[in-house]
Write a protein that binds this DNA or RNA. Structure first.
Lengths: 328, 328
DNA sequence: CGAATTCATGAAATCGTTTTCATAATCAGA
DNA sequence: TCTGATTATGAAAACGATTTCATGAATTCG
């Protein structure tokens, strides 16, 4: 491997001048520039990134936390972020937390040991106080999730509004017995807010909710199957069900279909996210503008890194959209 | 930020000794070890990874090439790889080539500039000769794809066998007019082999194929819609269709359903991959053992990095499995 | 008991850049 | 023509670790 020293020697110049050419600094004559470029080519030279990182004290790399990359919502988010980052000369390190607190904490070392310039969190398992101390090592941007105590920028959607929108739609269609089927409702702020919006819509319409119509811990298609089973065994069954994701909605729809139910006549179903799956299964769903969230979050991050000063709290709240299909 | 020097001073020892403690080298008394650990804690010290990378000449990072992370097949692959890599202390850098030759070549700089220790390719757009020269910078492992000229390990499936398996199944079910709907059939070896296996099965059964029953450039659900449209407008329609992915199969199934066709009576459909989507749509499909491919590829890579010697050609060929559902 | 190992530690070299500082040469303005 | 700014270049310091080499102390062996 040729080093900058070799290039310098070959070109009959100093390391400094070579470095200047590489980094496009001013004050190098065309003549020398040519000499250096030629030497670099002949030696097949490329600057060593570890050395550059050390000297520059920056890595041009950003860590992105997701629970699991196979979740279409997150893979979509990551796809757009990677594209955006590459455009600006940054790379992405993928961190799958697997919904585990410990796993999430482990990855924090990346920032501390200066392996990345910053962190984007798309889901949060730990309390914010776990992240707080790491802010001194580099910027953190929250995306999709949010936390009241986090003193960093957050790009997110008002989930209260989103679930309100979906629930209101069900109510407008005339359903009065509405089930609720989502993931965890305790830890994540997203889940909490979704529930608030749901209840708010019911409340405004003066509709009652039964405890047995709540189904929790539903994330996947499989979970949707299970939820339908429970639902179908109730004496007093809901006429419609609000879900936290298109996968769950699809699972319920499939199970209902297999059981000979008609959708939406016997059971109306509304999904969340507007994934390709939703179109495929003709599911009404609440769309989140994933592209925009991802881009905004990445832009904030790159800005923060380049400005080299800590980010302050800032909220970017984007709107939802209802996609009406035949499942409601 | 505290450096190793600060720790050394605080502990009243040399950098060398501190480094020994960090890296768990022998020949340090318990007494000093304790001193160092304490100093590290008090100063909240963590070793700077850039410096370590520079000195050690390795990055503990692996680049993974995928076309798009939103493609469930690849996101599944990456999920498993990341898990496996993390277990061994490596990180993953995500490189989306977007099926573009140029994009793919761009990412090669990562290896050249020593930003990663090695490359795993899960899809190949360029000719192998483009990769060849980069082998001197670090190991490359091919996964899922394969190339005859590549002098590196490849973990893959015999796609001839896979499509043969699926096609044979259709034939066994009694279909004699079989359509073929996949992605590109020219550039990628995977596609080429799939076609060979398909034709082989037909040939063995003495079944004829019509030119108009080939549908190419089908990757997504949308493409499936389009393919069905073309298919349904034919005078002589196939009774069954072999597809290159579950998404395409799902698209065809959905379009067929919307057009009032019954599956499999009016049109039998077979998918590829056995994604959750296939279960949801009740699609018969050819399963690829993604977990195994991913793990094996990652293990080979880590081995190569740690052995520090170039990898030689080696083939790991894994078996397919037919998942029978109601679409055939 | 002396010689040969093994253990324990530190000084200094090293990894390959970028950046600071010094200096010389050129240029512009009065 | 002299002065001060601007342009062009290189020597050396810095980034923060690991590794090599040297050295003395402790231990083992014949």
């Amino acid at each position: 491997m040729a080093t900058i020293q070799d290039v310098a020697k070959k070109a009959g110049l100093s390391r400094t001048t070579v470095s200047r050419v590489i980094n496009e600094h001013p004050y190098v004559t065309e003549e020398k520039k040519r000499l250096v470029t030629q030497a670099m080519q002949e030696l097949n030279y490329v600057p060593n990134s570890s050395a550059r990182r050390l000297r520059r004290q920056q890595t041009e790399t950003i860590a992105v936390y997701v629970p699991r990359i196979t979740n279409p919502f997150f893979s979509h988010l990551v796809e757009v972020m990677e594209k955006e980052a590459a455009k600006k000369g940054y790379q992405l390190i993928l961190c799958q937390t697997r919904y585990k607190k410990e796993q999430e904490r482990n990855f924090l070392e990346l920032l501390k040991t200066k392996q990345v310039d910053g962190l984007i969190l798309t889901s949060i398992e730990n309390d914010w106080s776990e992240f707080e101390p790491y802010l001194s090592f580099g910027p953190i941007v929250v995306c999709n999730e949010y936390s009241d105590s986090a003193q960093v920028p957050s790009v997110y959607l008002n989930q209260i509004e989103g679930s309100y929108l979906g629930t209101k739609h069900l109510i407008d269609q005339g359903y009065t017995k509405i089930g609720y089927c989502t993931g965890n409702h305790k830890s994540s702020r997203v889940s909490k807010d979704r529930k608030i919006g749901f209840l708010q819509a019911l409340d405004e319409a003066g509709i009652m909710m039964k405890e047995e119509w709540f189904f929790y811990n539903a994330y996947s298609v499989q979970d949707g199957f299970a939820a339908f089973k429970k639902l179908s065994e109730l004496d007093d069954k809901p006429q419609a069900v609000f879900t936290g994701s298109d996968e769950v909605a699809a699972g319920i729809a499939k199970a209902a279909f297999d059981a000979g139910w008609r959708v939406p006549e016997d059971l109306a179903i509304i999904g969340f996210d507007n994934q390709p799956l939703a179109a495929l299964m003709d599911l009404t769903t609440v769309e989140q503008p994933i592209d925009t969230i991802a881009k905004q979050a990445m832009n904030l991050m790159v800005e923060a890194i380049q400005a080299k000063k800590p980010l302050s709290r800032k909220e970017v709240i984007l709107p939802f959209q209802l996609i009406k299909r035949s499942s409601t």
